[in-house]
């Protein structure tokens, strides 16, 4: 195995890694959970994921982080799984409806949503 050692690397290799990290820190600082509980749950997710394959500490790590946060917030009643799934679909449609090179607004997924729900 080779380690990167002291080679400088960005703190977050993908924007979503930074975003999910920041949301977790912000929710902790606002008092929605204590960090020890977070670490406990995150550790359990890593352990479960690690049974299937050796986790690389990059994308694998933040996938486990995201899954932990989604589960934790749903269990605490702070988010609803259905609402999250609808928003994800809305963002997906928004990206598909927005011409390349333009900023993507969630509202761009709205019209398509009502059209597709009436046509199918």
């Amino acid at each position: 195995m080779t380690w990167c050692g002291d080679k400088p690397e960005p703190a977050f290799s993908e924007p979503w890694h930074a975003q999910v990290f920041a949301m977790t820190v912000a929710l902790n600082e606002a008092g929605h959970f204590v960090w020890a509980d977070w670490a406990e749950r995150f550790g359990a997710t890593l352990k479960t994921h690690g049974l299937a394959k050796e986790l690389d500490g990059g994308e694998d790590y933040f996938n486990a982080w995201l899954e932990t946060l989604e589960g934790f917030l749903a269990e605490a009643g702070l988010v609803e799984v259905g609402a999250l799934s609808d928003l994800k679909d809305g963002w997906t449609r928004a990206f598909l409806n927005t011409p390349h090179g333009h900023p993507v607004h969630l509202s761009a997924g709205d019209n398509q949503a009502s059209t597709s729900s009436t046509s199918t």
Partner: peptide, 28 residues
Amino acid sequence: DHPHSHLPSDPALRVKALETLLTDKGLV
């Protein structure tokens, strides 16, 4: 050239959904 925007990865879209919902609720 893409006719539409580059679709982010599945986890990136889930994070986007989470951020939208938590923002709407005033939690972040």
